[in-house]
Design a protein around this nucleic acid. Sequence first.
DNA 1: CGGGCGATTTGACGTGCATCAATCCGGCCA
DNA 2: TGGCCGGATTGATGCACGTCAAATCGCCCG
Lengths: 271, 271
Amino acid sequence: MTAGNAVPGEGVQCEHCAVRSRALCASAGHEGQRELRRWSRIRRVAADETVLPEHGESGFVGTVVAGALRQVKTMPDGREQVVGLVFPGEFFGRPFRARTDFGYEAAIDSEICVTERLAFEAVLRRHPEVEHQLLLQTMNELAAARERSLLLGSLDTLERVATYLLVMSARREQMLSRIGQDPRLEVAASLISRRDLASYLGTTIETISRHVHHLSRGGVIRIIDSSHFEVLDHQRLLAISGVTHDDLRLFDVVGESAAAEPGHARPAGAA
Amino acid sequence: MTAGNAVPGEGVQCEHCAVRSRALCASAGHEGQRELRRWSRIRRVAADETVLPEHGESGFVGTVVAGALRQVKTMPDGREQVVGLVFPGEFFGRPFRARTDFGYEAAIDSEICVTERLAFEAVLRRHPEVEHQLLLQTMNELAAARERSLLLGSLDTLERVATYLLVMSARREQMLSRIGQDPRLEVAASLISRRDLASYLGTTIETISRHVHHLSRGGVIRIIDSSHFEVLDHQRLLAISGVTHDDLRLFDVVGESAAAEPGHARPAGAA
DNA sequence: CGGGCGATTTGACGTGCATCAATCCGGCCA
DNA sequence: TGGCCGGATTGATGCACGTCAAATCGCCCG
């Protein structure tokens, strides 16, 4: 069960890590990074595989390198809710807590960098700059979760779909521009299954399907296949979503938002 | 606007603070606590008064001493959503961020202990044990926010009302038992206005009214007045809510949950 | 004690969306 | 190439809940 059984001495190769610059570990100093990689290892998980069980040991924490995880809560009667999604560069897990209070599962085939929880906590204790960065990311996650309250509490289902498409579109755009590719064609991949998407948006696959096709007929988006869409009319989609541009940015947990705090942090090494 | 203009030298009296043992500041060492109080001051805010504007400067942070704050997001078209409530002992505000991304308003007449944001950050930098405690509380808030996703995304309105009553009932119970009073009569005060409650639960005042009276007719609760209820049948209410007992605890941000991590923290002074 | 005003309750009505069910589509394997 | 199967679409139906409106209940102030 405790899948993060890294034996010291192994470790991971960080040099070519895809999320090297954005992940939590990048904020650690030279020494801290060396410690972290000693206790970490890369793990591949297939779609729908459980990463951390919903009611179990909080054995390890980690960062998504590629793919996406879904955070799920199941109710006694079997209803299941996706309460969050974890994308590349984002941290997951629950430090300083022995048991989990929701589950992590791979939404698609993914690659994650996991660290024994206790070892990770030790690193945090020895390296306050890492703990600081974790705090910033956690506060960002909290802002995103609050934004989700707005989405689930105040938006109708069409607005939710529009919002999701915009968020994914922006995410993809910044990802492409980061690796230097031309992001001109705005192609938003839903990536995750319709079932996950429906649960994440607090609705059903049927409703999603209807709205997506409605947007397509209106010329706002183009359907490439059932999980890939191109945003044709960004302005109109934004108007339909009902939210502001600023609100959309809150969904991005590891965005530049946290980093640029004048006069603070930006500690030791790692470029 | 920057309401937390504490001039050094003033400060607050912490000795008789109602939330002394639970608040963030309690975790600070002797030295840290002295610094914190130097830059803090008590502020009284009337119901519906704005504490921090929705789009403005993140001038100060603070802790609720008495009363309750609501966190609000407003949409371009005027729809307003209460994305969270802040109760006594809980921290609020956004350290390490110059601008706010949602507003704080007094839900009822309240008393808050505010600290200049920049001064607070300086304390965090000098006292990692306080930052650590803030991290724990933030992670708890995140868990609560995720639980709210479940509430808004998967529960019907009756279940939401039941859940809310249970949470408030538990909160009051532990508050009474903390000050040594007999919590036998479970009286859950809604405290906040129907309008806030409706928004918080993602529904309308009419629907709330109907469900509350439905529960009352069924003998599950007793209506004392429009904002005070007594839980008569805890078991049945829990069954109606559809969630587990464990899930309810996640709504409690400053509960014992965070504190009891074996072998960690529990730093310097303050009993 | 009486009048007035905001908040709550109650009722009637309409609808957005879930539900159920049938059809369609695409990938996989023989 | 053809048949199968899970996922996606499309349609038909029902209901939970939002909306609008009227009635009622407090509470403050004269």
